[in-house]
Simulated assay, not measured.
Amino acid sequence: MTHSSRKEVQTVKLQISDGYKSFGAFDILEGAGLQVKGSEKIGLVGRNGAGKTTLLRIMAGEEDLDRGQVIVPKNVQVGTLSQITFSDLDRTVHEALLEVFEPLKQLERDMEALTRVLETDPSEANLEKFDRLQTEYQAKGGYEYEKELKTVFHHFGFSEEDLDRKLS
């Protein structure tokens, strides 16, 4: 068997089967199905009101289906980034993208503040609190978010220099 004819087994990263979602009398999704495998990239295109945002919210676990099944393995994180307008066009693209990670940045600030406290009060309670913060920070991707931001940014065809450009 040659390399070109060999099929790569890809792990399912997300699957929706026979999904239904209604808002009042309006059926938004009827029998929706979707499967994302391996490192696939997907695009969601449709007219306004077709259910794109609803489907994304369901994929991210922000909304539930009325019927059907959503399967997301425990090691897979799904997130959404809403379209927004920027009020401060003098900020860089990088600064704007970092806003998504504000909860992680707050954890960083909390850990830095507690580090300063630990210099004068290394009590068991403070050490335990720092350990809890660090565990939460790590579990939420705190040590990888900057790398993840840049990886996703580059996958969309932007260069490193684009991160330093003004939003304007």
Rank of each mutant, 00 (worst) to 15 (best):
L55A: 11
H154P: 06
A32S: 08
K140I: 07
H3C: 01
E119F: 12
T11E: 14
R67Q: 10
Q134L: 00
T120I: 03
R57K: 15
L104K: 11
P122N: 02
D131T: 12
R47Y: 05
H154D: 15
R57S: 09
A113K: 08
F101G: 04
K129R: 13
M1Y: 11
Q83D: 07
Q106C: 09
K37T: 07
F130V: 00
K166D: 02
T80F: 05
K13W: 07
L56C: 13
R67W: 12
Q106T: 06
A113D: 06
V72S: 15
Y137E: 13
E95M: 03
S82Y: 05
L65G: 15
Q106V: 05
K147C: 12
K150I: 13
S82F: 05
I42P: 07
D121P: 07
I16P: 09
E40I: 08
R132Q: 13
L97D: 06
D121T: 10
G19W: 06
N126S: 11
Y137M: 10
Q15A: 14
G142W: 01
Y137Q: 14
R91T: 07
G142V: 02
S168W: 00
A139L: 09
T115P: 01
N48H: 03
Y143M: 01
V78E: 11
R165H: 08
N48V: 02
A113I: 04
Q10T: 12
V78G: 14
L29G: 13
V12Q: 10
F86V: 09
E161C: 08
K41G: 01
E136R: 11
L97H: 04
E112A: 14
Q69E: 15
P103L: 01
K129A: 06
K13A: 15
G38Q: 01
L34C: 15
H94Q: 06
G49M: 00
F23R: 13
L133N: 01
L44A: 02
L149W: 12
V9T: 10
G141A: 15
I71Y: 14
M111I: 07
G33W: 04
A125V: 05
K7Y: 10
Y145N: 12
G38I: 00
H3Y: 00
Y20W: 10
G31I: 05
F86Y: 11
